[in-house]
Write a protein that binds this DNA or RNA. Structure first.
Lengths: 206, 206
DNA sequence: CTTATCTTGTGAATTCTTTCACAAGACGGA
DNA sequence: TCCGTCTTGTGAAAGAATTCACAAGATAAG
């Protein structure tokens, strides 16, 4: 399969979200143009993105909403549920843990780790916060697919190295630091400081 | 001034972060190559990014760390402090509020709003959570530069419309929805669902 | 059946970003 | 001062992503 750019994948995810809303509203057909409006892009872009995976539309009509939902879920790998672990039981970790959306979309948090003895043992939902030291073994035992890193910047690289050694192939990082991972591992960063600074830049420019 | 791409601004922000670490470690000179390693890019990219704003380096030597820190802070608009408001006093809002990094980088939260009467009045740091209805007036009174939106998806567009009407020109959105704003307003999205789905896509692809 | 109206799928053109590659300086040592 | 070694700054080249523009298919109405 040809290489798909990160921006395309991002957009597919947005299309899917809007299609699901459309499905709830009972729409059963949608055009690339309507999809584009909500995704903040153009109809040509939508068609090009989708055409990388097949031709799902009907000329003159548009796309069948339920069908395209099905296709996109399959393309993105959302027709299965994913086993997620959260490392860092601080404020951000806790906010992420109770973020209902993840669950809904098939991302299930199966384990929470922290290095602070004061936090270890606490009950989080049906889980118990486990000590950091258990992590390496537990990631394998629980067959974790994705790890969310929500520890301070200083600790993040160490955590990630261990996570990678444990065989995890996908990491979502919230620590404000650029992590090194082997090219076989997928890494996404959520970096609030960078975003804020980008905003500062744009207002600063008048 | 020529138009600078969003990816360039993102990278500048990363360079600055690394330069500040370097400064703390006492380094006073750094090459585009060292800067590139940490930013996960190439030396040519670093030089091109910087050259959009001037020539800050010395051939044969590299860049003066303190000087480049100063320049980047000025370019990004970080040589001033920014007045931030937070809308949404839920889990995410609360995590963001206590995120020390923002403060450190000159982003000061001056007001917190929520529509839930149960939350209004609560003391957050030195602030008191205010009712949503006060928002429109308060944004102007407090001369807010940047608004962070941390409300549920259904409420986000309504909040943003009011924020825009109140004259705010920069918004950081955490709600999982694509917001519409006039082109005069800068908007950045932090969309954790999209990031997770991107990771799902990449492992799913084998 | 024919015509008018839609909207897709997709090569080609365009625009934007990144990488290459090298002349121009800067420094240190002899 | 001259030479060897660095590393910047930047046009030019290459590569990616987006947009254009239109033929081809689908439907509906007369």
């Amino acid at each position: 399969m040809k290489k798909i750019s990160e921006s395309t994948v991002r957009r597919l995810s947005l299309y899917l979200r809007f299609l699901q809303e459309a499905a709830e509203r009972g729409l059963d057909t949608i055009s690339s143009d309507e999809l584009a409006q909500r995704g903040g892009t153009t109809s040509a872009q939508v068609r090009k993105d989708l055409s990388l995976f097949g031709s799902f539309g009907k000329r003159g009509l548009g796309y069948s909403v339920p069908e395209l939902v099905r296709e996109l879920r399959e393309i993105l790998g959302l027709d299965q549920s994913w086993r997620v672990a959260l490392v860092g039981a601080g404020k951000i970790g806790s906010a992420l843990f109770s973020y209902r959306d993840f669950q809904q979309r098939g991302f299930h948090i199966r384990a929470v780790f922290d290095s602070d003895p004061a936090k270890v043992g606490a009950a989080w939902g049906g889980l118990r916060v486990r000590h950091d030291e258990e992590m390496d073994r537990a990631l394998a035992e629980e067959q974790i697919d994705i790890v969310i890193v929500a520890v301070p910047a200083e600790a993040a690289q160490g955590v990630v190295d261990r996570v990678v050694d444990a065989g995890v192939r996908a990491i979502l990082n919230f620590a404000p630091i650029r992590l090194r991972v082997p090219s076989t591992v997928s890494l996404r960063n959520v970096d609030m400081a960078v975003e804020l600074e980008g905003l500062a830049y744009s207002i600063h420019q008048r």
